[in-house]
């Protein structure tokens, strides 16, 4: 089984809020002192793929990213976790790219590298949280899509996945080729790579492709994209604390109810 996991490099979402900055002109976040990491849910997707490989060793896992040269570090991390191959489609763009355009790039790349039995995505990027690339890529590849899966196993002629729903969880099966978006769960906490694998990952090749080679016009990522981002800003949050005074719990509750009603939030 060949599994392709689409990963994105993002600014570490764990960066302290006090250090988070944006560049309003470029409409993108400023890296500052933060690390660049694999987007949270994408790393869970990688873990899901590697767990299949743990059970079925002939499985191959390819990590695929669309990003600048720095994104190779995300691929190196994937290789250190024991992905077999890494592919990067080069761009010098940073910041938001249109999900439909990204989906087209990823679908074309997957076709160019020989297709896949299973394509995995994180359920959404840890930067803009659009949650569209997985769905749009599956559509472009004409693959059925299972969303919000937490684990997957290989079965006869396909896969079985467990997915989260509003009312619990369900187990679904699908023939391959198939695409899945992965959400986080205790069962797919990303493994910590072994130190030897970290060192070896830096000696493995990364296949690089250009949009030219894929025959894709870069304009679809922004200028000619159907959605344009007009403004990017950090919302101002005003925290105000009002202490409700009162002699008895009943009195405090009454005053609290009045205060909530006065705010007209109910």
């Amino acid at each position: 089984m060949r599994i392709v996991v689409c990963i994105k490099q993002v600014i570490d979402p764990e960066v302290p809020p006090s250090e988070f900055r944006i560049d309003p002109q470029k409409k993108e976040a400023v890296q500052g002192r933060a690390n660049l990491v694999i987007s949270t849910f994408d790393e869970c997707a990688l873990e899901v793929a590697l767990q299949v490989k743990d059970k079925v060793p002939e499985t191959t896992v390819t990590a695929l990213t669309f990003g600048p040269k720095s994104a190779e570090e995300a691929l190196r991390k994937a290789l250190a976790m024991r992905a077999d191959e890494a592919v990067r489609v080069d761009t010098d763009r940073t910041g938001r790219m249109d999900p439909a355009g990204v989906a087209q790039v990823l679908a074309s790349t997957i076709q160019k590298i020989g297709g896949a039995d299973v394509v995995l995505f994180g359920r959404e990027g840890a930067d803009f949280d659009s949650a569209q690339v997985g769905q749009m890529t599956a559509e472009a590849l004409e693959m059925p899509l299972i969303t919000l899966a937490t684990e997957m196993e290989a079965v006869d002629k396909g896969i079985r996945a467990r997915r989260h729903g509003d009312d619990g969880w369900s187990v679904v099966e699908a023939p391959t080729p198939v695409a899945l978006t992965i959400t986080n769960a205790p069962v797919n906490v990303p493994r910590i790579p072994k130190v030897k694998d970290v060192m070896q990952a830096h000696r493995k090749p990364i296949t690089t492709m250009t949009l030219d080679e894929l025959g894709i016009d870069p304009a679809i990522l922004s200028e000619a994209a159907p959605v344009e981002m007009e403004e990017l800003f950090i919302p101002e949050v005003n925290n105000q604390v009002t202490i409700i005074e009162g002699e008895t719990p009943e009195e405090k509750a009454e005053k609290l109810a009045q205060a909530i009603l006065a705010l007209k939030v109910l």
């Binding site: 570090e73 991390k77 250190a80 910590i192 790579p193 130190v195 970290v198 060192m199 990952a201 830096h202």
Partner: peptide, 14 residues
């Protein structure tokens, strides 16, 4: 180096 950064990140996560 990139290798050192990745290795230290691994140890830090651990």
């Amino acid at each position: 180096t990139a290798e050192q950064t990745a290795l230290l990140e691994t140890v830090r996560s651990f």
